[in-house]
Design a binder for these strands. Structure first.
Lengths: 260, 260
DNA sequence: GTTCAAAAAACGAACGATCGTGTTTTTAGC
DNA sequence: GCTAAAAACACGATCGTTCGTTTTTTGAAC
């Protein structure tokens, strides 16, 4: 019986969803009409309704597809990366670990901006109905994925005592927020320094805090930034003793492109 | 001459703008129509056009009013509060300072959610054209406002060496993000603990980092959170020696209401 | 491999509703 | 009573969606 080949039907669905995603993320749900979507997908407006009963259903399908693709690839990628990194011998939560994490987060934001933009669309026009669950107990999820590795950290004599999942979650949120502001909010070096410099400092603060009792901070010169855009050169912290010996510990964070 | 009294005209303007603000922040710009605004403002649709030439002009006026009111009141409030706190003798950047800052930021988010929601509307529907400047070189602005106080911190022997404006900006962004996620993104205790507990831990991490060389962390019991909603009781850190002596240092952060 | 009828899919004009806005009439302030 | 503001109404455009028609696809018969 002449039902459309499943391959072709799925391709059409994906084509329409991709066009809708591109428009929803650029002008919102109510700011996008079906004719634009049809034109961008190179189909007729009526054709869309053979795949999606309403505009709202199309949106929900777009959200589902975007979430499963972005999350399945990147959440898993970040977690497996973390697991791999934390399995190396020695202390977890080193400068190298966090710099690598920052690189992964940066990729997540810069390679999949649509995912995040769609989340903001959902916040504005749907009260974040479709994304709210991604913020439910972030530390617990880190703990579930990295149970053994994180427990090893908390057993270390120099560990601060905070639940490692909580600690990782806060650093994760901090770095994620940095790149989201840079990429989606037009924050042009909003912390007054280039990406790698800013991330370096954030990690340094996360590792050892504002105050250091042992005078290790003495080797860091004052690196105040005066005037916009004048980023002082990267100055490495002497407290990188937590690093794995022999590893260079170069920041894995590239410079951000000036504009998308 | 029958020109409307300025007092009355301004009142009408504000009434319309307030209605528009309430709708824009709940359903976006394109998701709101002039008839809804008119109904909410208890005027006719035509009457709006005696005050605003177009819907876009109304939006821009709403943004201007919302920004000037929220920013003038709260940015100045936070800064003056910081200045006052940092003028107290002793070290700046104490637990008490940051807990107070967190309280101010929390008020900023929970008392003026419309300001932040409107920013997200602008991100989604106007590419953040009207709010992008609020993220331009945040550390520099802290440095300008708190020049003397922050310099005093950087001169302290135990200071980490990072530019104090940068350090304050990162802590500010971190706490702000926490409350924004809680209030606007539906993050129901997204860090797995009540507000004051989470903020307490964030501040503790900001002050002394993940690793502590002097064993001060030994007094903090493991406070891992297992299972959603099961927040362990607040356990005070022994490293509060940075606090002003005699001050209780109680967290100034209330619990968040469960839902708006 | 070609043909063919049936059925699904694609099309695009059209529909009713609603959009932002202009016009006309009524109201109300000075 | 003059005049600007407010209300009521109207207009063209555009919205999401439907529908009648055309085109394409399909599996089987040949």
């Amino acid at each position: 019986m002449p039902k459309l080949a499943q391959k072709r039907a799925e391709q059409n669905r994906r084509q329409i969803e991709q066009a809708a995603l591109g428009l929803f993320t650029r002008q919102g749900f109510h700011g996008t009409n079906m004719r634009e979507i049809a034109e961008r997908a190179q189909v007729s407006t009526g054709a869309i309704y053979t795949y999606f009963p309403t505009k709202g259903a199309l949106y929900e399908s777009v959200v589902r597809s975007c979430r499963t693709s972005a999350l399945h690839s990147y959440e898993k990628r970040i977690r497996s990366w973390l697991a791999r990194e934390f399995d190396t011998p020695g202390e977890p939560f080193t400068q190298r670990h966090l710099a690598g994490l920052a690189g992964e987060i940066r990729s997540f934001v810069y390679d999949h901006p649509d995912y995040w933009k769609l989340m903001y669309v959902d916040v504005v026009e749907f009260n974040n109905r479709h994304f709210a669950d991604s913020f439910h107990n972030v530390p617990e999820r880190f703990n579930q994925t990295l149970d053994a590795q994180l427990k090893r950290a908390s057993g270390h004599p120099a560990w601060c005592g905070i639940d490692p999942g909580f600690a990782l979650a806060t650093v994760y949120m901090q770095i994620l927020t940095y790149f989201l502001v840079e990429r989606l909010f037009g924050g042009n070096q909003h912390l007054g320094a280039a990406d790698d410099t800013a991330i370096q400092r954030i990690i340094d603060l996360a590792l050892h805090g504002l105050w250091r009792k042992n005078g290790a901070a003495a080797t860091i010169r004052e690196s105040a930034v005066h005037g916009p855009g004048v980023a002082s050169s990267v100055q490495r912290s002497a407290v990188e003793s937590n690093q794995q010996p022999g590893k260079p510990g170069k920041a894995a964070v590239r410079n951000a492109p000036s504009e998308r």
